[in-house]
């Protein structure tokens, strides 16, 4: 019970009207920030978008911003390879982790493992990048030089997005009605049967939504990838080739970019934003239609 020292009743109702006005003003500002971000990205990339026909961003000889050559394709393929490689590894590992927490582990162990995943998610991307640079890259270099490579980027990204997939899949699996699983156990169905036949299909949309969110993170991740990927502007032809992603391209060149170059970087930021927004929209659409 909470007691208050002074009288709190008999305040005029106008207090409530006033409170509501303040709250509405604050919430309006909060809601407008997203709009402001889109507007400023457009504002900064407008000169570049006006001067250059859109197809220049895919048809120029290469990315030589100082000679006004703005082909973004190598960065687009780099981003695509790195994030899809990471998804290929992180999705099965994340879902298996979620299965472990729901079906295989005693509650305390499951809780402990969930804490571990949450702490892993809290480690800053620059630390993952640093660890990749000092530990993974030399290992890969022994196997196949130069070490700074698409493979290193994929591995570091995998560790970074795995907790997102595991935690969202865990939540989705927990939402599957207990009766389904108890009924299956009563029927003597095997683990394999109940998990693959019932639990995963029932949790499908929730897991998919988590995967979309993780993909968004992988595409937008900057520092860790920048530190281990080698950052050569090229279409990778193998796992050991260095690549440059859209996000790390911005981080590498913003410091000295002027005029059209700066505009082109803002265009690539806009592109990145649209890509990630599409994935998020898909994820929230899935989450909303979970019970449909």
């Amino acid at each position: 019970m909470i007691w208050s020292k002074h009288s709190i009743s008999f305040q005029p109702a106008s207090v409530d009207r006033w409170l509501r006005r303040v709250l509405t003003a604050a919430a309006t500002i909060a809601a407008l920030i997203m709009l402001l971000i889109v507007l400023f990205l457009l504002y900064e990339s407008w000169p570049a978008l006006q001067q250059l026909p859109l197809d220049r961003f895919v048809s120029d000889a290469s990315w030589h911003p100082l000679e006004a050559q703005y082909n973004l394709l190598p960065m687009l393929t780099g981003t695509f390879y790195a994030s899809s490689g990471a998804m290929l590894l992180a999705v099965p590992m994340g879902v298996l982790s979620a299965l472990f927490m729901v079906f295989f582990a005693p509650p305390q162990v499951a809780m402990l493992y969930r804490r571990l995943l949450e702490l892993l998610a809290g480690i800053p991307s620059v630390v993952f990048g640093f660890w990749g640079l000092t530990t993974l890259v030399p290992l890969i270099n022994q196997w196949e030089p130069p070490g700074l490579s698409l493979l290193a980027a994929i591995l570091v990204l995998t560790i970074m997005i795995l907790p997102t997939i595991a935690v969202t899949s865990h939540a989705a699996l927990l939402a599957v009605p207990r009766e389904y699983l108890q009924a299956l156990a009563a029927l003597g169905l095997s683990h394999w049967g109940s998990i693959l036949g019932i639990a995963l299909p029932a949790a499908r949309t929730g897991i998919l939504a988590g995967i979309m969110l993780a993909a968004g993170r992988a595409i937008g991740e900057t520092m860790a990838v920048l530190m281990v990927a080698g950052n050569v502007v090229q279409h990778a032809s193998g796992l050991f080739d260095p690549v440059r992603t859209l996000a790390s391209n911005i981080a590498l060149e913003m410091a000295y970019a002027m005029g059209g170059h700066r505009g082109a970087l803002f265009v690539s930021g806009l592109l990145l934003l649209l890509w990630v927004m599409l994935l998020t929209a898909a994820a929230s659409w899935l989450a909303r239609n979970r019970h449909a």
Binding site: I33, I37, G220, G269
Partner: peptide, 25 residues
Amino acid sequence: RVIRFSLQVLASVPSIVFGLFGNAF
């Protein structure tokens, strides 16, 4: 709905894009 949608989109913005916006604005 509008406020929640706007915040949901904001949550998905990559940090480097925040960097671009912060620099420009």
